[in-house]
Nucleic acid binder design. Structure first.
Lengths: 229, 229
DNA sequence: TATTTTGGTGTTTTGTTTACACTAAGTCAA
DNA sequence: TTGACTTAGTGTAAACAAAACACCAAAATA
């Protein structure tokens, strides 16, 4: 079935920059394209927005179809509308970024894409379309936002050590932080809570496990308080 | 001439929240609709994105057609895609916000809209579509962004007094600032420059006129320095 | 049981932010 | 022309926040 409109309409897509964190650095999920244009090149997961779904729904659906990831933190980034960003026709894309903890979510490439894989931010292949630009913007947004919104926790397992949390900030902000000052600050804000447990299977003294206390955070923010790292 | 596609496509529009500042208050430009839906209601200026123009171009074109405003500061806000935001059909809109100084730009309602007018942010009429939500978001963005980006200057004439600048921040941030601390901070950052002139036609002691020094600002930012009010 | 690795903890110094009040310059009206 | 009024312009001290800095404890491993 086809659809006819009085005026020409741009196609509308969503693209998602999915970030994750491993021991060493920040990773992005990419998909190898199995269709022209840019056949064989790596690209952000994404696809067309259906007329009966919201933008957020479209982003979640594409992510689930192409990578198997679901129930993850997702936020709109910006909308790219250059005239020549797709060689076939006018395509406007709403870009999102997502944060996932590697431990909790196994990735499986599925029917839509030949291959899905994680790439280190310092080891990226050439990307299709304007995806390099979108990725750059997402990275920048993550860097600025992580400092005043507690989104970093989305990259960690539910229970984490303060070392892991500090490591997260060091990787994202790309600078070293002082252990004592960091712990003072985080614990002082009272937005993480001890679980009473300690980490297991490590070949050194085990650290306490904490979890992010969202209730407490929301209460503090309502009082006009301030989160900042 | 009509256009046919294999899959249904949402319509794509742009909407612009135009802010200005007068002596008392932050103002927004609204347009009274002369067509259904929401005939007679006030709405943000905006309209359909043409297939051969970028999103920014569409926003500028609509703004110019509907309000006569041109060459003003414009920045993308976010893209709204709820299913029911327009009663006629699925419409996705890319929202922008714009800043203009009232002195430099006379507003003229033109053919597209019966009427364009400024409204104080504390004295808004009911708005068409989801424009209230978009406006709220734009206001929030302005409040946060003005503190760490020198966009406030866009709301002032090219030459301004420190009193005007302080007033701007007080209105946008909705709190009083200390005169001495404010001046210390602004002059200390060295991003405004004395023009050597003083204001005219005021019925009290005339203040010095300054202008924003963009070159200096860019240089400071390149050195990794920080703007914050 | 000695060695290695990471966990966990306070104090001092430095810089930043806030609070606060008076004199100077010009306008206006009596 | 003088007195009253309005806004311009200026510095210091106190409070608070950020940064620098080093050692002992606990657990694992050889």
């Amino acid at each position: 079935m086809s659809h006819t409109y009085e005026f020409a309409r741009p196609a509308l897509t969503v693209d998602v920059v999915v970030f994750a964190l491993d021991e060493d650095d920040l990773k992005v999920m990419l998909i190898q394209r199995d269709l022209p244009p840019y056949e064989g090149a790596w690209a952000l997961p994404g696809g067309f927005v259906r007329v009966e779904e919201t933008l957020d729904d479209a982003a979640r659906r594409e992510l689930s179809e192409e990578t198997g990831l679901r129930d993850i933190y997702l936020e709109q980034l910006y909308t790219a509308g250059q005239l020549d960003r797709d060689p076939r026709e006018r395509v406007v894309t709403v870009a999102y970024y997502a944060l996932v903890n590697l431990a909790g979510h196994a990735v499986q490439a599925s029917t839509d894409a030949r291959n899905a894989a994680w790439f280190g931010m310092n080891d990226l292949p050439p990307l299709a379309f304007d995806h390099e630009q979108i990725l750059k913007m997402a990275h920048e947004r993550l860097r600025t936002k992580v400092r005043y919104q507690p989104i970093g926790f989305e990259l960690l397992p539910e229970r984490f050590t303060l070392r892991q949390l500090q490591h997260l900030y060091e990787v994202i902000l790309d600078r070293e932080l002082d252990k004592r000052n960091f712990r003072k600050k985080v614990l002082g804000m009272e937005i993480v809570k001890e679980t009473g447990e300690i980490e297991k299977d490590v070949s050194h003294r085990a650290a306490r496990l904490y979890r992010f206390d969202k209730r407490k955070y929301d209460r503090l923010m309502k009082q006009g308080l301030h989160f900042e790292i």
